[in-house]
Computed example of a mutant assay.
Amino acid sequence: MRNAEVLLKPFGNIPLRHHTVLSVLNGYKTPNNKISRWLDEGVLLPLKRGMYVVSPEVSGKPVAHLLVANVLYGPSCVSLDYALWHYGLIPEAVFEVTSVTPRRSRQLDTGVGHFAYYHVPEILYPIGMQSVAATGGGYCLLATPAKALCERLLLTRQLRVHSVKSMQAFLLEDMRFDDTEAEMIALETIAFYQQSGHKTELFTQLYWAIQQWQRQS
């Protein structure tokens, strides 16, 4: 373990590709065997074929799930329920890291958790996206609160909401959205979704529902 700390700790919690790990083992006759042992011992945690992250016990830093999500499948941006939970807008912990992508949807199981990617129209993908510092180092793409909320509604099937009252009921009862934090939601982002031609009525009701809460605060 001491040897692993010396060689791998400098990488922190940044996802590593196979050739990067090989580069620190250039003095070993069988570096691939060493990597296999590190995986068996939990020194390296597998993300996907040829990609790993150093165990927190070795790196001294927590796994940066936001950063891992970006690297595993891209282009992608962490959004939907995981982002809403990250901001404290919904109460229940979300253990599946959810992202949006202009590519096809995909589900990935890794040594650090489950990652889900959901397709959104390419025109909507960059709206409300921001680059933020990940825990322990590096930067990742994360949806703003408004983007995460809009995409949650966009991807909810058979959601029929035709009034401000029913929209607020859905947010409060089905999503357990914290309306006292409505100020976090940028109305101009909702307006972009509203004008995109996708679920126009739904986003219209969302716009007025959030605006009403903001005026009451």
Rank of each mutant, 00 (worst) to 15 (best):
G12N: 11
V78Q: 08
V63A: 05
L22C: 02
S105Y: 13
Y52N: 09
R37K: 14
W38M: 12
R103F: 02
V94R: 00
R103S: 11
E57N: 13
V94L: 00
I35A: 05
V94N: 00
V71K: 15
K9S: 15
Y52H: 13
I35T: 08
P10I: 06
W38R: 13
D40Q: 12
F11P: 03
P10E: 05
P10T: 07
P31W: 11
L22I: 06
R2L: 05
V68D: 08
V68H: 12
P46H: 00
P46I: 01
K48H: 02
H18C: 00
A69N: 15
L108E: 08
S55K: 06
N32W: 01
R103L: 06
L84C: 06
Y28I: 14
W38N: 12
L84G: 03
A4T: 09
L80D: 09
H86T: 03
F11Q: 05
G60R: 08
V78M: 14
V100E: 10
R106D: 00
L67E: 12
P31Y: 12
K34G: 02
K48N: 04
S59T: 06
P62N: 10
L8D: 02
P75K: 08
R2I: 06
S23T: 12
G27A: 13
S99K: 02
A69W: 13
L108C: 08
R104P: 00
Y87A: 03
M1L: 03
T101F: 10
R103A: 08
H65W: 11
T98H: 15
L45P: 03
N32L: 07
K29N: 10
S55F: 02
L8V: 07
T101A: 12
E5N: 09
V43Q: 06
V21K: 02
P62K: 11
Y52I: 09
L84D: 03
P102T: 14
V24M: 06
P31V: 12
N26V: 15
T110H: 07
L22N: 04
